[in-house]
Design a protein around this nucleic acid. Structure first.
Lengths: 343, 343
DNA sequence: CTGAAAGCGCTTACAG
DNA sequence: CTGAAAGCGCTTACAG
């Protein structure tokens, strides 16, 4: 059972293990484990000896062994609807930047706005016992919610906020933001304001609610001016919506698009068809994505704090994963009206 | 050492394990393990009994235990330069779509075009013993290459191609693509063709080589018309480059931008300053990103096969991870000239 | 503050 | 085609 080297024959790779570090530093493996994890109950002397041995051997912990023994992985599952919307790309980058320095890796799952796909992703990720989860919004299947609850995985919700007990969320009020931009258009004297939307996810519908509230308060609401198109948003769709609205309702004097890509398409369509913006019709978007400030004319929109949301949510999740108390369970980061020349 | 239930006291969670499946189906754990992994040396009868027990118990394998015992994780590390360029987002989505059905998860690392960051990411990912790696391009630090080689991790390179022995790559010739678009501009009668670039990664420089070759062959090369700006590309930068080129070189009759975001900015700047495109100056881009076909005028560009690259590279990596023979080590997927009205 | 023992849930290598 | 034994490299829980 032992080869020429005198060691038992085994499947052992040549990787340096925690035992090697323990042997070199002259302490027990448990102490090395504790020192490595930054436990406070290790004397500075031993801590230093362990660190020296680690550096000398180039020891790197085996994450699989750690995960198996502790029943906790170092992965955070991040479920977002889409990577096509630049919004979520920026959100994810901020999450990664906050998580990686603390030794966590993020696993990104794209749901394509489909509850069934989200449920499947949730099932698959949960089976890997992630250390935590970051989910977009609150709208999911009952089965998905049940799995989440049973799994007891620390979880923070992104983009929207909720006061429900036990729920941790970082976002802003989509409805308030929708109301704010429409109020701005009203203040500019617009009365026939259309809402042009695609994708129709829960947040787009909340913005619609804000739109309706503002218009009803001004006695200007006309359901005929709501143009809701299922399916993905795009620059091309925004252009088609622009032409359709102006053809059907020649008196339209403003269009609020639910996302900047649509609004950019609207602006280009106006240019193409010779409709002066904002003289004849004002155009407003949502999110303040790349290029909106470069359009002709520059686009009035709502700047949404996605980087901040990603960062704060990751920080909150870090605390939950360490089982620390979280003072603020609900963080509303607000939004900013970016008034440019298109309105 | 045993509690009231008669079972030994332990850290055991209530998760269903492989042993539970073995007990219920009346076979040994090893057979269950084999059946689960789809080994061919399990009789159909036992295979069926195991599957029944799995379904009945709702058994889900513990990936950490599997990774520890087999010394192989189910993670593929994907290192890309940026998520800001839509190109890489589409690449990643295609990779995920190909990998996930085979039980692999991808870990995305963003290098920000920085060799030092890539080296750090490589170190961190390699320490987790990924089942495979997907890397962008061939330009990296010597230390990074050494780590890769030592790790013996299956690896496929994206975007460019190489004939080097033992190297697996899927991409297209950046240089040929650069040459092709410039030849198109020459055919349209343009002679004072500028190259406007940002980011200056190795692929941007290869396109520059193609640009030079085409212009030298036509005896039209003028180094003064190469505008190379370090740092990220953007719509705004493309606009500034447009104005700078026309101010310094009033005789410029075409601009080839190294990426579509720059070219879109050039088109918008032309509109803003009243320079007719393509009459006074033709504009061409690279990649055919979202919105380029919607610009005014629609942008002439090169369509690059990023989805296909992601898919083929993932498929190739899957084969390598299964230690299967790979017939084609180098896959060149070409590119397509998209001639629209801006040229 | 430190450690000896046991175990996490799989798979490898060997045998039949 | 099937299985008993050992081990992967950590951490938990208990003890001192």
């Amino acid at each position: 059972m032992a080869d020429a080297s005198g060691r038992p024959r085994s499947r052992s790779s040549n990787h340096v293990t925690l035992d090697d570090v323990a042997r070199l530093s002259g302490v027990s493996p448990i102490t090395v484990s504790r020192a490595l994890r930054g436990a406070r109950n290790v004397s500075p002397d031993l801590q230093a000896r362990v660190q020296t041995a680690v550096d000398q051997l180039g020891y790197v912990p085996n994450v699989a062994a750690r995960a198996l023994a502790s029943a906790r992985s170092s992965h955070v599952a991040v479920l977002i609807p889409s990577l096509t919307n630049q919004l979520f790309v920026e959100l994810i980058e901020a999450v990664q930047d906050a998580l990686v320095p603390h030794g966590f890796q993020s696993l990104i799952g794209v749901t394509h706005y489909d509850p069934a796909q989200e449920e499947a992703l949730l099932r698959s990720h949960l089976s890997q016992r992630p250390a935590g989860m970051l989910l977009t919004g609150f709208d999911r299947s009952a089965e998905a919610s049940r799995m989440l609850e049973r799994s007891d995985t620390p979880c923070v919700y992104l983009m929207e906020t909720s006061d429900a007990p036990g729920v941790h969320s970082v976002g802003f009020s989509q409805q308030d933001a929708g109301r704010a931009i429409v109020q701005h258009l009203l203040q500019r004297g617009r009365r026939r304001i259309a809402y042009a939307a695609g994708q129709l996810d829960p947040r787009v519908m909340l913005r619609l609610e804000g739109y309706r509230e503002a218009l009803r308060a001004a006695d200007c609401h006309d359901p005929a001016l709501e143009l809701l198109v299922p399916g993905p948003t795009s620059i091309a769709l925004g252009g088609r919506q622009f032409e359709e609205l102006l053809a059907r309702h020649p008196d339209v004097d403003a269009i609020f698009y639910c996302n900047d890509d649509l609004a950019q398409g609207g602006l280009l369509a106006a240019l193409r068809t010779g409709v002066p913006v904002p003289q004849r019709v004002a155009i407003a978007g949502f999110n303040d994505l790349g290029g909106s400030d470069q359009m002709l004319p520059p686009l009035t929109t709502v700047r949404t704090p996605r980087q901040e949301i990603g960062k704060r949510a990751a920080t909150m999740l870090l605390a939950l994963m360490r089982a620390e108390a979280v003072a603020e369970r609900t963080v509303d980061l607000g939004f900013e009206l970016m008034v440019r020349q298109s309105s």
